[in-house]
């Protein structure tokens, strides 16, 4: 009982209700995030339908290796996150496992950002930043790269927030400041992490695959 009261917050009287509310709240927020990224993807779709050739040409300039490696990294991080949240819901002595999986998740998130950094560096060297001196001749190829920088940037900001949230859980959990088993915060963080991952699953084909099919 004392364990449950340690996690209990105003205005809740029962932990189970608080947990449900936290999950419900984050699902509502994820619906909002879906519309957020949805509007970006709509913009992409409209531009790509208007300029299919330029988008194919621009898509061929992306580095598919960076993209593919990052996809693998991020999907693995979702696996470790899922293990962490499932383990935290079990009754056994799983604290070490939860901490290890959360640590791995954060590390994979950081690895993604590092790979992304190398990719950005290469893009800048190849003059793939819209503006004067842009590498491709078609003007609307700049549109693709405008959206490329924007969506990957917004995704990276989301991922950074996710990493910060996971690191916070690891630090608090390791210092025994919060109890990870049955923690509503862990479940909420995990759901957010998976959303960031799902967004990337949409971004990967939209960014790296145009123009490579034939």
């Amino acid at each position: 009982m004392s364990d449950a009261t340690a996690l209990l917050r105003e205005p809740w009287q029962r932990l189970e209700r608080q947990r449900q509310a936290g999950k419900f709240g984050i699902w509502i927020f994820l619906a909002s995030e879906t519309l957020f990224f949805g509007a970006l993807l709509l913009t992409y779709a409209v531009c790509r339908i208007e300029h299919p050739d330029a988008f194919a040409a621009a898509g061929r300039e992306t580095n598919i290796w960076f993209g593919t490696i990052n996809t693998a990294i991020l999907l693995t991080s979702s696996l470790t996150m899922a293990v962490a949240s499932q383990a935290a819901a079990q009754k056994g002595r799983v604290r070490q496992l939860v901490l290890a999986c959360l640590g791995a998740t954060a590390a994979l998130g950081v690895a993604f950002m590092i790979v992304k950094g190398f990719e950005y560096k290469e893009d800048i060297e190849k003059h793939l930043v819209p503006g004067t001196g842009f590498a491709l001749s078609q003007p609307s190829a700049q549109l693709f790269y405008g959206l490329y920088w924007l969506v990957t940037g917004v995704h990276a900001i989301h991922l950074t927030i996710g990493i910060a949230l996971v690191v916070r859980l690891v630090l608090l959990g390791a210092a025994r400041r919060i109890r990870l088993r049955g923690s509503p915060e862990l479940e909420v963080t995990a759901l957010y992490w998976h959303l960031v991952d799902v967004v990337w699953i949409f971004l990967y084909p939209l960014i790296y695959l145009p123009g490579r099919a034939s």
Binding site: E50, Q142, L143
Partner: peptide, 29 residues
């Protein structure tokens, strides 16, 4: 509201970073 956020973010991106989202000369709409 998230869609408003995106529409304003695109305006900010175009003005501040020069990303050509709504620039007709570069294919924007």
């Amino acid at each position: 509201t998230p869609v408003l956020a995106i529409s304003l973010m695109l305006v900010i991106a175009e003005r501040w970073l020069g990303l050509p989202i709504f620039d007709p000369a570069r294919g924007g709409d």
